[in-house]
Structure formats: structure tokens, C-alpha cells
């Protein structure tokens, strides 16, 4: 799917990056713990999180994540918006809670990658 599909499925709103709405998304990850996100290296992924601080955007940058979705209506501050623009990371915000947001995307075919094995 593409970022625009995620926006539609989640009834979300673009905060940053409407111009990148046609970027492909292949996998997703939902977490409030950034080290758990950093343990998961996949191409073209989207991060769903309820955590809202600059390290979320930094984590997305390190992982080459193409889109961050803030759940529960969270809104990033100016510094996060600036960082996301500079690093070309789209930001969406949705009123759905984490579980529902992940479920809606899963139902439409988005997957989280293989089961974790050490």
C-alpha cells in the first residue's frame, strides 16, 4: 500500500509530507519503545506509536522509516515537524488507539514481518 492508503484506512490527517503520499509502504511496526523499533530492520516501513517526542523522529530517521503515525490524536511539536520535513518522513495523526490502528492496517493486508527469533 502507499502512505495515502494508510491515511484513508485510519481516517488520519497529514501533519508533514502530503507530497510523499504516493510512497510505497511494505511493513509496519507498532510500539512506544524505540529500542524495540530499532530491533526491527525492514525496508519502506511505517511506525505507529503513541510516544510523542523528538526521539521518535530520530528513530524513524535511523531506520529509514517512510511514515510515522501518531495514535490517540497525538500531535508533534514544531521541532519534530521541522526534523521530519528535513529528513523527508511523512507524519500522520489518527484518533484511533494503537490496537485498533494496527488492526485496521493488518486487515487491509499490511504485515509486521516474521516472528522474532534470537
Amino acid at each position: 500500500m502507499i502512505i495515502e492508503d494508510i491515511m484513508e484506512i485510519l481516517g488520519a490527517k497529514f501533519i508533514v509530507g502530503e507530497e510523499w503520499k504516493n510512497k510505497e509502504v511494505h511493513t509496519a511496526c507498532g510500539s512506544d519503545m524505540m529500542s524495540d523499533v530499532l530491533a526491527f530492520m525492514k525496508d519502506q516501513s511505517v511506525l505507529l506509536t503513541g510516544l510523542c517526542n523528538p526521539q521518535v523522529i530520530r528513530t524513524a530517521e535511523m531506520m529509514d522509516i517512510v511514515c510515522v503515525v501518531f495514535v490517540r490524536g497525538k500531535l508533534p511539536d514544531e521541532s519534530m515537524i521541522e526534523m521530519a520535513k528535513e529528513k523527508e518522513i511523512a507524519i500522520l495523526t489518527t484518533g484511533h488507539r494503537m490496537f485498533s490502528a494496527c488492526g485496521l492496517l493488518y486487515e487491509k493486508g499490511l504485515r509486521g514481518g516474521p516472528t522474532y527469533r534470537e
Binding site: D32, M33, M34, S35, D36, L38, A39, M41, T49, L51, N53, Q55, V56, T59
Partner: peptide
């Protein structure tokens, strides 16, 4: 630190992994 999204005990394992 956990409320900031870190301190899950994955830092060093991740550093080893990558």
C-alpha cells in the same frame, strides 16, 4: 527514561546485532 521510549534493555543487544 522508559516514559521517553528507551530503557527496554534492547540497546546493547541491538548494538551487537547490527
Amino acid at each position: 527514561i522508559r516514559t521517553l521510549g528507551f530503557g527496554a534493555g534492547m540497546g546493547l543487544p541491538n548494538m551487537k546485532k547490527y
